[in-house]
Nucleic acid binder design. Structure first.
Lengths: 196, 196, 196, 196
DNA sequence: AATGAATGAGATTTCATTCAT
DNA sequence: AATGAATGAAATCTCATTCAT
């Protein structure tokens, strides 16, 4: 379970994801996380202010990577439409590849209190901005209609992705999520593109 | 606070919505709900099996009315596209009209544990079926493309509505939600209709 | 241990005195007090806001009785000097009669934090006022010198009583405390009376 | 903060007085003392057996100086009565001059547990013996009554001094403590001297 | 049907002390 | 001699639920 080479900070965060995915948010005691990470309970508090801080850090860390990976891929693409597709695909792909993280983000972290959820929203802003950028770009270059309500479209996009992933998690990840990217993209894109 | 004419069952459910909207899910103790309803703590357990049962019943009751009102309106409409519009509009309208309920369904009840959320999903099935019906009808009569993945489209639709309402609640209901129905319908409908 | 006739409030306070005297302030967990009182841990919190509140209430209750008993006796005495003697004697007597309470007030409660000690001082004010009254009376009627610094004399008197009782408690109450009343009174009285 | 010329032992004790006076007994963690002394936490344990040992040593060191200074002055005085006065005055004076130490001895160290307080009493014995000596001397040479209960008188004296200083500390040292020496001496002396 | 006093399980966090370097 | 990262034991309080009246 323990990994001598990793710094304790990482060890604890990884353990937290595992423990929360396995036991659910409300049955994930600090002592369980510590045990899984192979450290003493008190050690947790050398790296995190309190239990909530573990969760916020977890989300910041994982979501930061999540978004920056998508960003990296998208930068190499020219067309807004293709960027949109890539975003959808990678959103599904990354969560597919880390089922524990999917459970934590889609189900367990939502059970947290309002303050924690506000912090989580803060972290999500970077992702939403990325969506906005793609939309603006597509509006500018004529790929999308030029009078889109960006804020609203972003809600459509994010709401769709979130619901699709949540359904997949609730169905215990029994089907291939990534394969749905094409269809989802088609539906969204048709909503945005110009029509004759 | 108390209402002599109402049966205690209703009194307790209404009190629950108020208390949860006001104090948040995690600070809504059974004793608080009892007090607001004007009954003793123990009385709650004559009408509900346990605390979770209050929440499920609350959701069943309110969501049942929510869906049946939409159903009633939609039955009087012929075109699938117009039905879709009506559904979106009424979804927004009903939650606009009951801000406490909006807070409870969009924010507070999500903090509940997995088992409760599964039961809530059970209640939602009636609503999702209604969406399915509209989609099938539109596919049949040629309003929508005839090879839609209904399950997926329903996720797009529900995910979108849910996210748009949640955003409105999180922004403290400061703008007119119903006015967004038209734009949301336009985006979704464009995604579904036939294109030449 | 339990006493069905007594109200729970009293039961808990009495248990607290016993438990603290026996185990010391820092080893007197709420659960120990509850057990000794014959109630559940949670019941404590129906009668007291928190653990500190038990201690403050304990002191208020016991000290209130302590002072009012002394007051009652003193009211029936005419001479300031005899009042002083009675106060000293009863101070010693009452603590002699309740050795557990003596341990708690002289040793254990002093280990509490500053805030609790301030509240304790608040309760003590009634006692100090009683001392002041005796002094003023004696100054007026010529029993004592008429230019005493009352505030200071009160400190001499209280400091003396407190130290004498503490010594007795620390010596494990092995000698007769009440018998020292006469000598203590003699020393103090000589300090206060007029000299030719 | 650190003082290169002082041995670490002294550095740590001085830091302890400062930290306790500033933060109170219960918020004076070993790590805080170490930081203020400019040493590592572990270093503390090269000089002291444990936390309690810091406090006992602190008291021994400071109280040792306290008593020996009083002894030195008193030795140069002939009359028991004047010795008594000097003791009172210097008791007040020394604590006046070191407000941090006054806070620590009068308020903070009292919050310690019974065992530590027994050790503190051990240290105090030297002071009490000094008082006894003065009393015996005065009884012998006719300054004081010759049938005093020395043990008891010593409690009156110490209890008085202690209470007067504590009051001054609790009143945040806002008045001149040393000026009260004369009055206190007068009250005590009158209690002890022969009367015709 | 209604009451409400009583129950008791369960978890976060602190901090004195150690010991490998 | 000195460091400081790591340890792990230990206790308050909440609140859903019961049951005697």
């Amino acid at each position: 379970m323990e990994n001598k080479s990793k710094p304790k900070y990482k060890l604890i965060l990884d353990a937290a994801v595992e423990v929360i995915a396995e036991n659910g948010y409300h049955h994930s005691q600090v002592s369980k996380i510590a045990k899984k990470a192979g450290v003493a309970d008190g050690t947790i508090y050398l790296y995190f202010k309190n239990k909530e801080d573990i969760l916020v850090s977890l989300f910041e860390e994982k979501m930061g990577q999540f978004v920056s990976k998508i960003k990296d891929e998208i930068e190499q693409i020219d067309e807004a439409d293709q960027k949109l597709y890539k975003l959808i695909e990678m959103h599904f792909q990354q969560l597919s590849e880390d089922p524990d993280l999917a459970i934590v983000t889609q189900l367990e972290l939502r059970q947290s209190n309002k303050r924690l959820r506000l912090k989580i929203n803060e972290v999500l802003k970077g992702y939403l901005t990325l969506m906005d950028d793609i939309l603006h770009e597509g509006m500018k270059d004529g790929t999308f209609q030029d009078q889109l309500n960006v804020k609203l479209v972003r809600q459509v996009l994010f709401g769709t992705l979130d619901e699709v992933v949540t359904n997949w998690v609730m169905k215990e990840q029994r089907y291939n999520l990534v394969k749905q990217a094409k269809e989802v993209h088609y539906l969204i894109y048709n909503g945005l593109r110009k029509h004759n």
